[in-house]
């Protein structure tokens, strides 16, 4: 499914839906970077992400490197959680893990 990005709360909160994969990652990055340049704190809702891949994971990792903006991810969808668990990366957001190894 195609990627959707919804801005909420004046752009301080983004909700991403559909696929966060190589196919849509460039768009998401562009929007996220614009928002990050405007606000010191951003919240990104991942509950609608139903497809997630290495490119998506990389975007999450990179976004944590913004010097002056804190980007927090919330409501990770199952697809996102699965890959975070698999790759063992530490993003620093509170996660609800499935408990499976």
């Amino acid at each position: 499914m195609a990627t959707q990005i919804h801005e909420q709360n004046d752009g301080k909160r983004l909700a991403i839906g559909g696929e966060l994969t190589i196919y849509g990652v460039a768009d998401v990055k562009e929007r996220l970077w614009q928002a990050a340049a405007r606000y010191p704190q951003l919240e990104v809702d991942l509950s609608g992400v139903d497809d997630f891949d290495t490119a998506g994971l990389q975007l999450l990792l990179m976004s944590k490197r913004w010097p002056a903006t804190q980007i927090n991810y919330v409501n990770h969808s199952a697809a996102v959680l699965r890959l975070i668990e698999l790759s063992n990366v530490v993003l620093g957001d509170p996660l609800i893990l499935s408990g499976q190894d």
């Binding site: 460039a26 490119a55 990389q58 975007l59 990792l61 790759s87 063992n88």
Partner: peptide, 26 residues
């Protein structure tokens, strides 16, 4: 049983980041 360590050492600076390039190792 599998254990994965993701290697993020090659992630570039924000300005040089190309979202479609792979920087990760495992």
């Amino acid at each position: 049983h599998m254990h994965v360590e993701t290697l993020c050492d090659h992630l570039p600076a924000i300005a040089e980041y190309d979202p479609e390039t792979c920087y990760l190792g495992f």
